[in-house]
Nucleic acid binder design. Structure first.
Length: 767
DNA sequence: CAGTGAGCGAGCTTCCGCTTGACTT
């Protein structure tokens, strides 16, 4: 073998091999091949921060293979990405494979096109040590922060917690947003809207002023009965709209969330499939750049589909500061392809990418914005209406970027009017509008915010959100809104009517909420480690990493400058700070006269009656889902101690209501049935029996057939993942294409023997 | 599968970024 090329991704390896011909073998490193081991700190803080890198278990075979291939090759080409991490991957490869400098070349390319690859091979360089050192500084700083901060939390808050440069700031954003929402005072004002009719075409215009009270609104609307309306001004202005840049990881996640309702993990999973199918370019990127090849292909496609006047070639450049631009933007590999394999979700995500890319290479949309001002004869106030007419669709023919603003008024077409023209008001309504609190984050809007702050990378946005949810700092959930009353005044052909209407406000769909643990941990970290929790911390250290990359700074001295004071703070905090529990005194228990507290315990949020150092032991109870330390009242806390309670008998056995690890339940004859949304404090005997009977029916339905073989019972059941065979506590698969109803005892036994005892995967071995 | 919360002390937990599987019964 003459040449071995090593890239980061196997899909990329396959493509490039096609470009390079038979003298080149292209292999993938599957990302990093060495790292600090997870068991120990593995940074020698007393010896110039010397890192102890190891090859992880799951990479051993791969490294062995690459080592063997590199020995056989005349030349090894290290072709990992041209950014900090990519440079470090090449360096680790050189070290771990024991590559000699004279038979090692470093090459880079930003786009996977034949000319870019051939050009890269013509222009090799050596490894950039400064860039590698910038990566080491990044890696080691993150390790020091994470592995010194987390143990402080284990001591001061609760075991198994974690803290880090990225995750802790992410949680802080969510906690602070929640507090803004909690402290928000909504104010209301009356908005007055008139509906005018011009030759059968209706249009809507809003009064320039909002009234504070319904009396003022009613007075104005009532006076309108004797008023005349006329067009006082007419403004027409040309305007244009420009298409958004092609997708990066972050903007793809945002748009897939807004337009398709996908969570960020789902978006990335599907994008990965499309990438592996060869349908799109790499999906983890912060670049908006398109290759010349892609620009030409887009132009050709647009001219073919829509005509030459719709094409406009544009070069976008990244505005985000930390952008490392190792790849192209996310785009279709072949602009002419419209269909992809997979389910509807794959097709929809691909359509989105196709449209966004094509639209980015299309002409501006030309609009005409019209404003009609309407004077009221007996008032100084006036109405105004805004309309928009599209003169030339341009890119809007294909795609328009979504917004996070829910309340965007649709601007429609306005009728032709002239200044001085009299108008007839069909109806005028005044309705009370409330100001809304800042919006809680969705996964995607959090990613947007993190990117703005330069925190995290395309490959970590989705995993970071998974981490803070897994640590129970944050919950992703939907909440129902509450009914709210608002005042309403209407003037129409029947005269004035006034009423109180209701609307639902504050409903949330798949939003991020902080938990009590998230709040307590954030408060603790902000108080004691303000520097790291600062929103600019990452931006500051990134500046220093850049200086290291440019050879202006030594990485060990940068780390030393950070670590010395940081370490001092951790030691000081461990010795001096109180346990952080978020404790609140709720009041006094009328029965015992002892204090009632809400606080965070070793197992989570709870309420407590009495103190620990008293002779009488305190009583404890966990908070229920939906309750929080900051909001729970004395009454709600005392209610928690009313459980477990008996609510009668059924079939000769007691019915016991309680709340366990998995929520409220009714226990009957050793079996548990979840109460669902029923309130454990008020549920009746009848309702509980109903739940038990429903559960029994479900179990019956789940059982397809049952056999007895001597002492053993073999069941064919319907489960979450489809039909399966159950014997005792062991489960066995049923091959695809087999009707579970048709299985006989003999068939089942055969399947069981064939599958034997396979080693079980545990939660631990998965990671 | 349906508590626990003191204190003792063992041993465990933890970071961010680069990549894909294997496989849920």
């Amino acid at each position: 073998m003459k040449n071995l090329v090593i890239v980061e991704s196997p899909a990329k390896a396959k493509t490039i091999e096609g470009f390079l011909g038979k003298d080149f073998t292209v292999k993938s490193s599957f990302g990093h091949i060495r790292d600090l081991p997870s068991k120990k700190l593995s940074v020698d803080v007393d010896n110039n921060y010397k890192p102890d890198y190891v090859i992880p278990k799951d990479k051993e075979n791969l490294v062995k293979e690459l080592r063997k291939l590199s020995k056989e090759a005349d030349m090894v080409w290290l072709a990992s990405d041209e950014d900090r991490e990519g440079e470090a991957i090449s360096w680790h490869l050189q070290e771990a494979l024991g590559l000699k400098t004279e038979k090692t070349k470093r090459i880079v390319f930003h786009e996977i096109t034949k000319s870019a690859i051939l050009n890269a091979v013509e222009n090799p360089r050596s490894i950039n040590v400064d860039l590698v050192n910038a990566q080491q500084a990044r890696r080691i700083l993150d390790r020091l922060v994470g592995y010194e901060l987390s143990p402080v939390l284990w001591k001061k808050v609760k075991p198994n917690l974690s803290a880090g440069r990225v995750q802790s700031v992410s949680v802080r954003l969510i906690v602070e947003r929640e507090r803004e929402v909690e402290s928000f005072k909504s104010v209301s004002a009356f908005r007055v809207v008139a509906f005018f009719d011009v030759n059968g075409m209706e249009f809507k215009a809003e009064l320039s002023k909002r009234f504070d009270t319904i009396e003022e609104a009613r007075k104005f609307i009532s006076d309108c009965q004797n008023a005349e309306f006329s067009v006082s001004d007419l403004q027409k202005k040309p305007a244009k709209r420009t298409p958004a840049a092609p997708f990066t990881t972050s903007t793809l996640q945002q748009e897939a969330s807004r337009k398709l309702g996908f969570g960020v993990t789902r978006t990335m999973r599907i994008a990965q499939d499309l990438y592996e199918q060869g349908k799109i370019t790499y999906m983890r990127t912060d670049s908006v750049n398109l290759s010349d090849l892609a620009l030409n292909a887009a132009k050709e496609e647009i001219e073919k589909l829509y005509g030459a006047e719709f094409s406009q070639t544009r070069k976008f450049s990244s505005k985000s500061k930390g952008a490392q631009e190792a790849h192209e933007a996310i785009r279709p590999t072949y602009m002419s392809e419209q269909k992809v394999a997979g389910d509807a979700a794959h097709q929809r995500l691909y359509d989105l990418i196709w449209k966004r890319t094509i639209a980015s290479q299309m002409a501006d949309a030309q609009l005409e914005r019209t404003t009609i001002s309407v004077a009221v004869s007996n008032s100084d106030l006036g109405f105004s209406a805004q309309g928009e007419v599209i003169k030339f669709e341009g890119f809007l023919k294909v795609y328009l970027e979504g917004t996070d603003d829910e309340a965007e008024d649709q601007k429609g077409i306005l009728p032709n009017v002239s200044v001085g023209q009299q108008l007839v008001a069909k109806k005028i309504e005044g309705s009370e509008r409330f100001s809304s609190p800042p919006a809680r984050y969705t996964e995607a809007s959090l990613v947007k915010k993190l990117e703005e702050l330069g925190i995290g990378r395309p490959s970590t946005y989705a995993p970071t959100i998974s981490t803070i949810i897994a640590r129970n700092y944050v919950l992703k959930e939907s909440r129902e809104g509450q009914e709210r009353k608002y005042g309403y005044v209407l003037l129409d052909e029947n005269g004035i009517t006034e009423e109180t209407r209701t609307e639902v406000a504050g409903a949330e769909k798949q939003k991020l909420f902080p938990t009590d643990i998230g709040k307590v941990v954030t408060d603790f970290l902000v108080e004691n480690f303000g520097e790291i929790l600062n929103y600019n911390f990452t931006a500051q250290v990134e500046k220093e990493f850049d200086e290291i990359a440019e050879g202006q700074k030594e990485w060990t001295s940068m780390i030393d400058g950070f670590y010395k004071p940081f370490h001092k703070t951790t030691v000081y905090t461990e010795e001096n700070s109180e346990r952080a529990t978020g404790e609140r005194l709720l009041g006094v228990d009328p029965k015992s006269g002892r204090n009632v507290y809400a606080r965070l315990g070793r197992f989570g949020p709870m309420v407590q009656i009495g103190e620990a150092d008293n002779e009488e032991k305190p009583k404890f109870s966990s908070l229920q889902a939906g309750q929080s330390l900051e909001e729970i009242s004395l009454e709600e806390a005392l209610d928690l101690f009313k459980l477990p309670r008996e609510i009668g008998e059924f079939e000769g056995e007691t019915l016991l209501i309680g709340v366990g690890k998995f929520g409220p339940y009714v226990r009957h004859n050793k079996s548990f049935v979840s109460l669902g949304s029923e309130d454990p404090l008020s549920i009746t005997r009848e309702k509980a029996i109903e739940l038990i009977e429903t559960k029994r029916e479900e179990i019956k339905k789940a059982l397809i057939s049952e056999f007895t073989d001597g002492d053993t019972v073999i069941q064919v059941k319907n489960g979450r993942f489809g039909p399966y065979i159950a014997v005792g506590k062991k489960n066995y698969k049923i091959p695809k294409g087999t009707e579970p109803e048709s299985l006989s005892l003999e068939d089942c036994k055969e399947l069981i023997i064939k599958q034997g005892d396979k080693p079980k995967r545990t939660a631990k071995s998965r990671k």
